[in-house]
C-alpha cells in the first residue's frame, strides 16, 4: 500500500512542479493546489497506512485497539488542509489583482519590481 501511495505522491508532486514552472499564473495556481494535496499525502503515507480503522476509541474502551490508524499525521494534515486552502484563496486573489493592475497573466511580463530596462545602480556621489 505504501509503495502504491509513494508512487502516487511522486506523480502528484511531479505534476505540481511541472505546472508551477509555467509562466501563466493560472497554471502556477493549479500547481500550488495540486502540490498541497501531494504534500498532505506525503505526510499521510510516511505515518504508515492502515485500512478502514479510524483512530477513534470505542465507547467501552480507554485506549485505541492495536492496528488503528496513526492519529498524529492526521492531526497535522487536518490543519494543513485548511491553511493550504486559505493560501490558495489568497494566491488566487493576488493573481487576480495582479492581472487587473498589470494587465497580463504572464509572469515574464510582470516587470514592475524588476524592470527590463534597468538603469543600473546610481553612479556618482
Amino acid at each position: 500500500m505504501e509503495t502504491a501511495l509513494s508512487v502516487l505522491v511522486g506523480l502528484f508532486l511531479a505534476t505540481a512542479f511541472y505546472l508551477m514552472l509555467s509562466k501563466k499564473i493560472i497554471r502556477i495556481l493549479l500547481g500550488v493546489a495540486v502540490m498541497g494535496n501531494g504534500v498532505n499525502l506525503l505526510i499521510f503515507t510516511s505515518g504508515r497506512l492502515t485500512r478502514e480503522l479510524p483512530p477513534i476509541i470505542a465507547t467501552d474502551a480507554y485506549v485505541l485497539p492495536p492496528g488503528a490508524a496513526n492519529a498524529l499525521p492526521q492531526a497535522l494534515i487536518l490543519t494543513a488542509i485548511v491553511i493550504s486552502f486559505s493560501f490558495f484563496a489568497f494566491l488566487l486573489v493576488l493573481a487576480f489583482r495582479a492581472y487587473q493592475d498589470l494587465g497580463t497573466d504572464d509572469t515574464d511580463a510582470m516587470r514592475f519590481a524588476e524592470p527590463v530596462v534597468d538603469d543600473g545602480p546610481p553612479q556618482g556621489y
Binding site: 485548511v82 486552502f85 486559505s86 484563496a89 488566487l92 486573489v93
Partner: peptide, 13 residues
C-alpha cells in the same frame, strides 16, 4: 474563525 474567515473570502469573491 474558519467560518468567518473563509466566508469572508467566499463572499468577497
Amino acid at each position: 474563525v474558519v467560518t468567518g474567515s473563509i466566508t469572508s473570502i467566499a463572499l468577497a469573491l
